[in-house]
Design a protein around this nucleic acid. Structure first.
Lengths: 208, 208
DNA sequence: CCTACCGATCGGTAGG
DNA sequence: CCTACCGATCGGTAGG
């Protein structure tokens, strides 16, 4: 359950390009892709309306870059959650914890990435959906492994996987920092609920 | 767990007004409030661009009418779920089942109602949020009642309530008719998962 | 990265 | 519920 604070979300993008991407992320999260104008974004980045196009080909390209970076970050978080865990209970607990916490910690990014897929060009959307499918498969695989080993006794592994992904994604809809929840507190709670769905007594595993 | 097929979603609205509301619902669900133009909506209703304003004051009024009807429908569904159930397990099962099934059955309406709140005028949004809070309280109350009676043994009733609402809402994000799920199959699965979260052996209760 | 600008589309209104 | 239309704003480009 490591937290990555040094991740470089925007890769090789220059400082001007980054400021625009950050502004676009905030604007898209607040008002949606269609509700945010390129002028909004440029102004929030402290630039002229046309500056957006010095760094990015189109408005849709901004959304594509954000969606790609966000889904890659989520997939990395999910893979990293498994690094130091060996038992089925430990692995699923870490997986649910980190996937949930990722959506809380990056709730603006997650919101754009999860709810604005429909505004992407078809080929861009397809690419993003392939990334998301990989994340889904990690969850399915870990649940299947726990069942095969006898650690879980659910009759509906697909339903639990669906619930894990659904609970995580939905966090980005309602989460607000400064409220009663933190990424870690929420991660712990959902991990416990999911282990209950899997027919595992969570108290038999060491708490993180 | 009754299904209401005779609900009148649009109340006293006339036939022209209804066609526009239906078209707006479809357009908002497909492209979002800001992504759907009043011309799109009018064309889908088979009318001229200006016809929208013969029936509705503004575009935001369309969203408000849809949001109000949708949240009232969801609240009614949740209250109706409890009518014939007396045991805590039966009541929570029916509640989760019907709340989940509502979001699948009315997935386009639910999507607009749950994800376009930000586009509402502040006073309209406040009114809608009050309706949603009533739905949330029904869930919280039923879980609390089951704990008080000794039927549930969870340590995190608020977390389970959050999960119930979150799982239900998120159905409207990904659900598509004609897929592997139906409103009823999904309702059953989620009800079972939630009873597991509550520390109840679901097989001890009679299946619906 | 800016100034200046383009054609298209937007929500909404006048008048019937 | 239609035709005709308005001012504002949109995504994007030219030229530097």
């Amino acid at each position: 359950m490591t937290t990555s604070a040094t991740d470089d979300l925007w890769g090789e993008a220059g400082p001007g390009s980054r400021r625009i991407l950050e502004a676009a992320l905030t604007a898209f999260a607040a008002r949606g892709y269609h509700g945010a104008s390129t002028r909004d974004i440029a102004a929030a980045a402290g630039m002229s309306p046309a500056a957006v196009y010095a760094h990015h080909r189109t408005k849709e390209d901004l959304l594509y870059a954000i969606s790609l970076a966000g889904h890659r970050s989520a997939l990395t978080a999910v893979e990293r959650a498994l690094w130091e865990e060996v038992t089925p209970v430990g692995r699923v607990r870490a997986l649910v914890h980190d996937y949930t916490a990722w959506h809380a910690r990056h709730h603006l990014l997650a919101r754009v990435v999860q709810y604005e897929l429909g505004a992407l060009a078809p080929d861009h959307r397809d690419e993003i959906l392939r990334l998301r499918r990989r994340t889904e498969e990690v969850v399915l695989d870990e649940i299947a492994a726990g069942i095969a080993s006898g650690a879980f006794r659910t009759e509906d592994p697909d339903g639990v996987a669906l619930a894990v992904l659904s609970l995580g994604v939905d966090v980005s809809r309602w989460y607000a920092p400064g409220g009663q929840h933190t990424p870690v507190s929420l991660g712990r709670r959902y991990a416990t609920l999911v282990l209950a769905m899997l027919g595992t007594d969570h108290r038999s595993a060491t708490a993180g």
